Simulated scan of single mutants.
Amino acid sequence: MTGLGTAFRALPTLVAGLLALTAAAPVAQAAPEPEAPPEFVALRSVAPTVTEEMRYTTVHNFVGDRIDGYRQPLCILTRPAADALRRAQARLLRQGYSLKVYDCYRPQRAVDHFVRWAKDLQDETMKQEFYPHVDKSRLFADGYIAEKSGHSRGSTVDLTLVKLPALPTRPYLPGEPLVPCFAPRSERFPDNSVDMGTGYDCFDTLSHTDDPRITAKQRANRQMLKSTLVAEGFVNLPEEWWHFTYKPEPFPGTFFDFPVARRSVAGHRAG
Rank of each mutant, 00 (worst) to 15 (best):
K217C: 03
L21Q: 01
R86P: 03
L93F: 04
L93G: 04
A88K: 00
S137V: 09
F130Q: 14
K100R: 07
L178K: 09
R44Y: 12
K148F: 03
R79V: 14
I67K: 00
A82R: 02
L14Y: 11
D211G: 06
R213Y: 08
D257W: 03
R153D: 13
G175Q: 12
Y246E: 05
R94D: 13
V115H: 08
Q89N: 10
R66A: 10
A216N: 09
P32G: 06
R86W: 00
H113F: 02
L178W: 04
S149I: 04
G253V: 11
A183L: 11
L225C: 07
S227N: 12
Y102E: 09
P12L: 01
L164F: 08
P238C: 15
P132G: 05
V15L: 13
A220Y: 15
L18Q: 10
C202H: 01
L229D: 03
A42I: 12
T78C: 13
Y97G: 02
D112T: 08
G150K: 00
P73I: 01
Q72H: 05
V179K: 06
V235E: 13
Y200F: 13
P168W: 00
E39S: 15
R188C: 06
L74Q: 15
Q108C: 04
K136C: 07
R153K: 15
H113N: 15
L178R: 06
R9M: 10
G69S: 14
G271E: 14
C75N: 10
P177E: 14
G267M: 09
A88W: 00
I67S: 02
E129W: 01
R138A: 08
R262H: 02
Q95V: 03
H243N: 14
Y97E: 10
Y56I: 14
A118T: 08
R213K: 07
K226Y: 09
D142Q: 14
L237W: 02
C75P: 05
L74A: 02
P12A: 07
L161P: 09
G271A: 13
P26M: 14
A166F: 04
A81W: 01
D123E: 11
G175V: 07
V265C: 07
K148I: 05
R116Q: 10
V111W: 05
F258I: 11
Q29C: 11
G267Y: 15
P168S: 04
H268N: 09
P132E: 12
A84T: 06
R138G: 05
D204K: 00
R219E: 08
P165G: 05
D204W: 00
K127R: 07
Y105R: 11
V134N: 07
E52T: 06
T169C: 13
A24G: 06
D158I: 06
S207N: 12
N192R: 09
K163W: 05
P37D: 12
G253Y: 14
Y131F: 08
N236F: 04
T209G: 03
S193A: 15
R222V: 10
K136P: 06
P190Q: 13
L229M: 12
E239K: 04
V265H: 06
T22P: 03
Q29D: 12
G175Y: 02
F234T: 03
Q108D: 09
A30P: 00
